[in-house]
Design a protein around this nucleic acid. Structure first.
Lengths: 146, 146
DNA sequence: GCTGAAAAGAAAGGCAA
DNA sequence: TTGCCTTTCTTTTCAGC
């Protein structure tokens, strides 16, 4: 990717609501040129979308945890991600190398909700779980070097 | 949090660039009322900001990994997050319960970069690392139930 | 809290150079 | 790619309920 596009993407990962006028100033192009570039970045899928960043504490989801799962019966078809997709507490699902099959990032209101969620995960996907509770988050979702 | 605010936040986590006009329609309020509520949600820190969602593949960072770290010498002061904050490959840093001290989420271009990053992490924070490579990401950063 | 209106600003598109 | 122009939409503020 080219220099100017990188600058545009970098600016938008920090502030996704920057106006094209401000963007144009920062990257030293005209508004129409910047507008055109952003549209192309969106079409190419470099920019997948825009989202508000929320405080999970404010949303009453102060407990974050990682849940490593592996199938109870490894000979069964492995469709855990689909079987778990309906659970809104699951923020992310990663298929991983190593001893576990998947690593889930979950957000809940507290220990009781975590317990209930783990039971739902186990029965919905027929897996065993190993859970790591997050105590604090020094930083999260930082803008990548672009 | 109240019903209407939840609807507003939910809509903005899906599309952070929704206009106040569209938002107002969805939640059944006037544009100014919605505007006022969004401003308050931002001030209260419920909405922390807005960010473009980028494709890490398109940014030439196709390799994601989790790096669990623990201090080489547990009697030393534990300031790993600050010591590692300058590394742009680190997307997130979680302080965790369990055998490890921190769990890092990192994004790199490939195995060679991962190797170099791990060496930097070890020397910068005086820690040992245990790395889990992500093979695929069925889903990530889903909107929470609000 | 809310509404509605007015003014300012931005988006989106076309077009000539 | 720039610069300009036009139309439409959005943001922002403000008086008043």
């Amino acid at each position: 990717m080219e220099e100017t596009d990188r600058a545009i993407v970098a600016a938008l990962t920090v502030d996704g609501r920057l106006s094209y006028t401000d963007l144009a100033e920062r990257v030293g192009l005209s508004v129409s040129a910047v507008h055109q570039r952003v549209r192309r970045l969106e079409q190419r899928g470099v920019i997948k979308g825009y989202a508000a960043q929320v405080s999970f504490e404010a949303l009453d989801l102060p407990l974050t945890a990682f849940v490593a799962i592996r199938p109870f019966d490894p000979s069964q078809p492995d469709d855990a991600p689909e079987r778990l997709a309906h659970l809104p507490e699951i923020d992310s699902c990663y298929s991983v190398a190593g001893e576990d099959f998947y690593l889930l990032l979950v957000r809940v209101a507290g220990p009781a909700d975590l317990e209930r969620l783990l039971q739902e995960i186990r029965t919905a996907a027929n897996v065993t779980t190993r859970t790591t509770v997050v105590l604090s988050t020094p930083y999260e979702k930082r803008s990548p070097r672009i």
